[in-house]
């Protein structure tokens, strides 16, 4: 039996975006019966990694659940599209990283969930070179 999984793809298979670009793609839930999902959440978000506590902000959020009349046919891929903001740009510093991703959570019975995320870059800020006196 194939374990359930979520696959996320971006249109054109792009991984690099600029502020104001439209991020579009689709996700597909595999290995699950159509009525098994209680809710599906899609988020376009950034989070921090590094020394500090994790900060997170959601740029685009969409929740679908049967009770809301927004039922998703799991057999069909679900499309998403959003215009990306001006900031914060993706960044990989010394003690701080800012990572952008598309994250999908599928909530199933007994509080379990299936989770997947795909990273992408917003902007082209390179890794900083340390310049000390």
């Amino acid at each position: 039996m194939i374990p359930p999984a979520v696959r996320i793809t971006f249109d054109g298979d792009h991984r690099m975006f600029h502020p104001g670009d439209t991020l579009a793609g689709e996700y597909r839930v595999e290995g699950m019966q159509p009525d098994e999902a209680k809710a599906i959440e899609l988020s376009v978000l950034w989070y921090t990694e590094g020394k500090g506590e994790e900060d997170l902000a959601v740029h685009f959020f969409e929740r679908r659940e049967p009770a809301g009349g927004n039922y998703v046919d799991l057999a069909q891929p679900c499309r998403f599209s959003t215009r990306l903001p001006n900031s914060p740009l993706s960044y990989a510093g010394r003690i701080l990283k800012i990572c952008w991703c598309v994250r999908v959570r599928v909530f199933v019975a007994r509080g379990k969930e299936i989770f997947a995320e795909e990273h992408f870059r917003l902007g082209e800020v390179p890794t900083p070179e340390i310049v000390l006196p």
Binding site: T48, G50, G52, E53, E54, D55, A57, S87, P88, L89, Y91, G93, L96, I98, V125, P126, P128
Partner: peptide
Amino acid sequence: EAAMHSFKSDHN
């Protein structure tokens, strides 16, 4: 030219 912009979140 390659500078990262100023940034402020709760902990970073």
